[in-house]
């Protein structure tokens, strides 16, 4: 009798494991694509897995992997959509925390910094006592860093460690950057000096020369009682070169600052070994 029961059990049960087996194989296939960084195909196969495993409650992991694949492929909007779907199915608190962090990191990558900062603040309030505050400081620092706000980034990283690598980097970038208001101010006092300050010497020399020329024509006209001509020279020639000098000083300071920031970003992308968004 027991022999019969075993045979009957195997017969019945064999119907169901086949499907489960296929889904397991599919999951394995999708995971292998994901692991080999073939993200486009990984997304397809996770979606296929979801489609055929409806009602099996396997959404959390697949949605999470889809989101990570989209993130890796630079499709940040889709990534956030799938992170949110994964969060809906997350049963463990750790998973939920992990997803929240991924959403924050994706927002940093997407350069929606106000959104990232808002989410970090919300995350911090929601998880008081549960998470290490250095995690909050770290991603807040990254948000500022991506936002080109190196001073605030430095402050955040210094809360983790006064000698944190990113704090040192932020400090060095911040100190290397030119002050745009200062460049404009010194150029307003002595035309061309703003360009000198930012290392654009030839532009500084030309700016100074044109302003001297315009100034000479204008002042000379006034001194020889050619008031009307002096007004004309002052407003049309000298003022034009003076305004150009101020614009140039500002433009060069911004350009040089961008160069400094870009070098830092290049370092972060290529050489920084810590966790990145």
């Amino acid at each position: 009798m027991s022999k019969k029961i075993v045979i009957l059990f195997i017969s019945f049960s064999s119907i169901f494991p086949i499907k489960a087996q296929k889904l397991n194989n599919q999951k394995f296939f999708a995971d292998s694509l994901f692991a080999s960084e073939n993200y486009f195909d990984a997304i397809t196969e996770y979606k296929r897995l979801q489609f055929f495993s409806k009602k099996n409650g396997k959404y959390f992991e697949s949605n999470f992997k889809i989101a990570l694949s989209y993130k890796a492929g630079g499709k940040y909007d889709n990534a956030i959509k799938y992170f949110n779907l994964a969060k809906r199915d997350a049963k463990l608190l750790e998973d939920s925390i992990q997803i929240d962090l991924q959403i924050i990191r994706t927002n940093i990558l997407r350069r929606t910094i106000p959104e990232a900062l808002f989410l970090i603040e919300k995350f911090e309030v929601k998880n008081v006592g549960r998470i290490d505050t250095s995690l909050i400081n770290y991603w807040t620092g990254w948000a500022y860093l991506v936002n080109d706000d190196w001073e605030s980034a430095s402050q955040e990283f210094s809360k983790i460690d006064k000698f944190h690598q990113l704090k040192m980097l932020s400090d060095s970038v911040f100190s290397a950057k030119y002050s745009v208001p200062l460049a404009k101010f010194i150029s307003s006092v002595l035309p061309g000096s703003g360009q000198f300050y930012t290392g654009n010497y030839w532009s500084g020399v030309f700016s100074l020369a044109w302003n001297l020329f315009g100034g000479y024509l204008t002042i000379n006209a006034f001194l020889t009682d050619r008031t009307f001509e002096g007004i004309l020279m002052g407003s049309l020639i000298w003022a034009r070169f003076y305004r150009g000098n101020l614009t140039n000083a500002e433009k060069f300071a911004i350009k040089e600052n961008n160069k400094i920031s870009n070098n830092a970003y290049k370092f972060l992308m290529e050489k920084y070994l810590g966790e990145k968004p």
């Binding site: 086949i18 499907k19 296929k22 889904l23």
Partner: peptide
């Protein structure tokens, strides 16, 4: 004939399984 019957029953049980394999092939 218990063993023979079990095999026959198993065959009928497996018949839909074979069909399932076709449909279940994703």
């Amino acid at each position: 004939n218990s063993s023979v019957l079990s095999i026959i029953f198993s065959f009928f049980a497996l018949a839909p399984l074979i069909a399932q394999t076709e449909n279940g092939n994703i």
